[in-house]
Amino acid sequence: MAKLSDIPKQNSFEVPENYFENFAVNVQQRIQTEEKPKGKTVWLHQLKPYLSVAALFVFAFSLWYAYAQFATQEQSLVAETELSAEDYYLYALDQSSMIDYSTLETEVALEADETDPISYYLSEEMAYSSLLIEGY
């Protein structure tokens, strides 16, 4: 049985030979090695604030461009939809409806022209004899 107070307070760990003598040199070499690539990229560090601002502008422009593209697309879609509605109505009118419509239009025109003398002479009801009497 051992008490803590009975055990001599000592450092029982050891280090390899000349460890501490070489340690400082090793650390210095490591610091220099780690500092070298830093030197190569020093211009990057100097440009960092400008690059950040540029990146922000690019981001803002991208957002604006994306929005503009979206808005244009939306407008084209509305125009296309309007055109489509017109097309739809035209498509809905079948051929017979169009004929009916033109016939109706002609009839209306003829009825309206009965009072007109030229129309009267040209009408089928006018006798050829009357044309002769009148000296034609």
């Binding site: 051992a2 803590l4 055990i7 000592q10 029982s12 760990f13 050891e14």
Partner: peptide, 15 residues
């Protein structure tokens, strides 16, 4: 297994 430990049995036990 530490080759860099030079303590006796009681030191090892303490550690």
């Amino acid at each position: 297994s530490d080759e860099y430990f030079s303590g006796d049995e009681i030191q090892r036990k303490l550690q």
